[in-house]
Design a protein around this nucleic acid. Structure first.
Lengths: 198, 198, 198, 198
DNA sequence: AATGAATGAGCCTTCATTCAT
DNA sequence: TATGAATGAAGGCTCATTCAT
């Protein structure tokens, strides 16, 4: 009803994602979207009133079919903590390297515009959730003897800040896959019991 | 043709910095600068042709009287590696927390627009330089027995990626001074010889 | 081809009247009507092609169930001229003060747009008819000795121009009921034989 | 300074007056003004931000070089009340008949949109002022024996409401000069002492 | 050097109108 | 008949950029 055609809505979001990936958030105009979708100006406004609405919908839609969750839930129940952490990190790496449909810059632009220091912030939720996941994996690994770590939360946070650093570096300075591997490895090595580390 | 009035140029750059700090890069218009400087439109064009030129000049001017260099060079020759690293980190923290004249977002916006994956990139130079400085400080500390570290370069890079992560987090999610301290501390603790760590 | 559903047509006209009352003529869009009627865009076009057609139909419909005629025809045959004039004026006053469904402004807007100086003009017909009615009432009153008036037509016209003046004043400047009474009274007092006037 | 070129401002107001006269208030777009003035879109916005601002300025400017005031003040000091009233009415008549630059409809449209029942309203001020002027003229005439009138204020108000009625009639129904004369005469005749009236 | 009025391109948004279902 | 998605024209507004003074 209010949503017109759900299919077209998805179509628009798909095209919009590509545009946001290409131009970030601020530079994107409704005309950019219209052109990308090859629909009429009025047609777009039937679905979204401005780029902000569009962007948030793109990010939401993203969550739905996000490969991360799928991947994580597709893990066999008997996977080791190390395997799972490796998988998690592999996903992060994929995201960092992603060329197409990469929302990193647009997201940073959007939230630097709408920073809500005190209040709710989806970005903060995402970050905190990721930290918790990693912390749990590390803790599990410590219990099973796979990892050695006196401060799992600290280590998890360190990992996620490095990931953030790598993301922004990738979008501004540029970074090679090797450099990403090296950085993530550096963090993980701190988890390996000393006797194994040598 | 020459520099017109170097003084006025500096004046414009000062005002422009505040504008870029406030609005990032993409959202800044020449009119914003004109308004901030309270000069004529034509007057501004005499010095800078567009916001890009202006922004690069702001960043350059920044390097000149940058407090970081001053601070670092103001260190007594006999300062310990630990003291110097602490000082360096203090500067980074100040930058992360900086409210006024903070170019972080504008810089990210600008370089995400002008990313030159392979070629030269001042941002890359700055990052690499910072890594080298930290690496040297750590190495010195290791030599003097202040630090323990098997991979100074890796540790330096880890620190700088965390700093990048903290910067972007500060500008988007928001972050408290305590959280910054905790993160930086986490990295530094890895450098402290075990016997001292307890 | 025919009238589609006469009931729905009336429904649309009712809702449209409210809209024209609220927004005048020029500002009303087909969308306004669609929204007010809660019907589909296409559905509206089935009945009316544009706001002009709609407005004219609203005014016509108005004439049909207009309370004025009803009221006037509901007068007992033996009513005095004075009673009937009082009734007529009461109706005019009601119209001037009418808050809901007041077409005054819309009508003025429409006819200032479509003024036909020489030709036919429903507004002119209405005005002339009203003048004739008042003139007849006055003449009757003069014959019966209720009124004193040497120029009934002139007095009737004077009354109706004052009514027009009051209508437009009511819609633009705003006017109180007392002010309306005072004005209408002023005109009527001219009709009262001198000996009664004191 | 803030006013750019006073000359051009006046030029725009002149052209705008013609547009408002032609199209009323609501239908006028900034593009209409731009086209009438043959200036650029941006150029117009340098002086006025929207049609409302423009319209109010047109009305203000109107007051300044309004012929009414000039005319009234150009009256010889020894003019009789009758002469002055005749002059006043002649001005009203001119205004009612005015073809070019007639702001009547635009004014009604504007104020029907911005009616402030309780508060200040320039239209109300103008009306009240006119009433006071007429009242004074009548009173003077009564004192000098030129007029006979028991209720100068009532008569003045009656005249001005008739004038309002004639104005709106002129713009909607259309009216001939003779009809205007007849109406105004009707009111004035009420002022003439009976013995002269025959 | 400096000014600021002027231009015109470009994006935003709303609406009348059409048309496939 | 009725629906409402879709289109495209029209008007609002802002800005980069130029240029006469």
């Amino acid at each position: 009803m209010g949503e017109k055609s759900a299919q077209k809505r998805k179509y628009i979001l798909d095209k919009a994602r590509a545009v946001f990936s290409e131009k970030g958030f601020k530079s994107v105009t409704m005309k950019d979207i219209v052109d990308a979708c090859e629909i009429s100006r009025g047609g777009l406004y039937l679905y979204f009133s401005n780029t902000e609405e569009l962007f948030l919908a793109v990010r939401l839609r993203d969550d739905m079919d996000d490969s991360e969750d799928e991947t994580m839930s597709a893990i066999p129940g008997d996977a080791s903590a190390g395997d799972m952490l490796a998988l998690f990190i592999k996903e992060q790496k994929k995201e960092i390297l992603r060329k197409k449909n990469n929302l990193t810059v647009a997201t940073y632009e959007y939230y630097s515009l709408h920073r809500a220091d005190g209040g709710e912030n989806p970005l903060k939720d995402e970050f905190d959730t990721a930290v918790r996941i990693v912390e749990r994996l590390i803790s599990n690994g410590v219990e099973s003897g796979e990892f050695y770590c006196e401060n799992p939360r600290g280590c998890a946070r360190n990992l996620m800040y490095v990931v953030e650093g790598l993301k922004i570096t990738s979008m501004t300075i540029g970074i090679t896959e090797e450099a990403i591997d090296r950085e993530l490895m550096y963090v993980l090595e701190g988890l390996v019991p000393d006797e194994l580390n040598n």
